[in-house]
Computed example of a mutant assay.
Amino acid sequence: MNYFDYTSGSKVSQALSLVKEAKAFADRYGLERLDHLTGFPSVAENIANTQLNHSDLEILTEVETIGLKLNSTLVSLIMECTIQEVRYAIAVVEQARKRETLRNPEGLFYRVLEKKCKSNGFGF
């Protein structure tokens, strides 16, 4: 008797896909990096719901690469936004750094991303 449903939409198939994504990420960036990123609640929640993919982990890495320190609030917002919106916020922070010394680059990143991601087209 087979207790597992291996159909393409099954939880087992989704979990196997998630494991493949995690392995590909770990092969590229290292296990320590994967472990660090999966420590954030919103990342862990997406893993539990098998909704996390390789691009989610890569965009978090891109944010850290420019020197921003991730916290659970930033990670939650990043996970709600598109990759293009996150990259836009990254570009804004990088441009601002060229003009002046930023006291709180994470705060600027958050404000830009929140406005870009949560905007409904009416400015509020």
Rank of each mutant, 00 (worst) to 15 (best):
R99G: 10
E94V: 14
F109R: 03
L37S: 02
C117L: 07
H54M: 08
E106W: 05
M79D: 05
K118H: 10
S76P: 02
A15E: 09
S76L: 06
I59W: 00
L108G: 06
F122R: 15
K69A: 11
R28D: 08
L31E: 11
E62F: 00
K118E: 11
N46D: 04
L102F: 14
P41C: 04
Y29F: 11
R33K: 14
G107P: 05
L68D: 02
T61S: 05
E85N: 09
N71S: 09
M1S: 15
T50A: 03
D5E: 15
T73P: 00
S13I: 08
A91G: 13
F40Y: 02
K116M: 07
A96L: 10
T38S: 09
E94L: 14
S55D: 11
G30I: 06
T73H: 08
Y88H: 12
C81K: 04
S10V: 12
V93E: 01
N53D: 11
C81E: 06
E64D: 06
L60R: 00
E80H: 09
R97W: 06
D56G: 03
A89K: 03
G107M: 11
V12F: 14
G30V: 06
N71Q: 07
T7K: 12
L74W: 00
L34W: 05
S72E: 12
Q84E: 15
G121M: 03
I90H: 04
E85V: 05
G30M: 07
D5W: 12
S8P: 08
D56R: 00
P105N: 13
A91C: 11
E114H: 08
S119F: 06
T82C: 10
V75Y: 01
G67Y: 03
N53V: 05
P41T: 02
R111S: 13
M79Y: 04
F25T: 07
K23Q: 12
Q14C: 10
V92K: 03
L31N: 10
V43N: 00
S72W: 01
I59N: 02
S76E: 05
R87F: 01
G107D: 12
I66S: 06
K118G: 12
K69H: 08
I47M: 05
E62C: 02
L18E: 06
